[in-house]
Design a binder for these strands. Sequence first.
DNA 1: CTGTATCCGGGAGGATACTG
DNA 2: CAGTATCCTCCCGGATACAG
Lengths: 131, 131
Amino acid sequence: MTMYVPKLEKDIRNPLEAGLASFEGKWKTRVICALTQTPNLRYSALKSAMGNITDAVLTTTLKELTADQIINRIQYNEIPLRVEYNLTKKGRAAIPMLSAICQWTQTFNPEWGQVKCGCGTANCLFDLKNH
Amino acid sequence: MTMYVPKLEKDIRNPLEAGLASFEGKWKTRVICALTQTPNLRYSALKSAMGNITDAVLTTTLKELTADQIINRIQYNEIPLRVEYNLTKKGRAAIPMLSAICQWTQTFNPEWGQVKCGCGTANCLFDLKNH
DNA sequence: CTGTATCCGGGAGGATACTG
DNA sequence: CAGTATCCTCCCGGATACAG
């Protein structure tokens, strides 16, 4: 019933800060990565892709990404209920940006350069350590 | 005497998360912005550019940016002590990335598109609301 | 002038139990 | 299956005071 409402408004001053806020927190980029590798994922598939996330945290993450127009929530009123998530146009437009950050890190911190993703997916964005 | 040491290690899994961590927090991008507009700034100049930051928070921010190799700390052993900060090569390489995020926000959230920076500096990265 | 030391409130992330 | 509701812990950002 009582949704969480922060007492202090965040102090976001420009479009850069607004953009970065879309990716902050522990799970958002991981959800984006999963949806990049597999375009349509159900709640349960997303949850197991995240590994050890709890429902409360996954739900919050998905709501924030939806509010930021980075993912779509598509509900099929079947029984049992089916819900799928995928990237919006804005979400897909973020992929090159995130890749650029990834490469920037690997360029200047070569210790990251050796870590290769083992997922075998051709369009995988990220080089994951635990994957 | 007792520096702050986090008890739980941060869970950074890939170069994207490592890169984004360099920009997180309220002040890091603002410091980068200030040093983009003015290449060499003293502690006190940086502090007044930030507006209402406290010393404890500014010091922490500068240390983290230095540790991440995004800014250089140059100390002149004069009396009184003079310290200047500027962007490293890695820091300068981040500017196009940050501009891309800025533009991404302005493209998909046009309410940010009308806000223009009033600083008059040619190489100003960001469109600032309070500036 | 350029910081450190110390304390504190608020909140993000998480654990657990429960539900249509 | 796809979430809510509730509670809790840790620690970040900030305030204030002090120092080399």
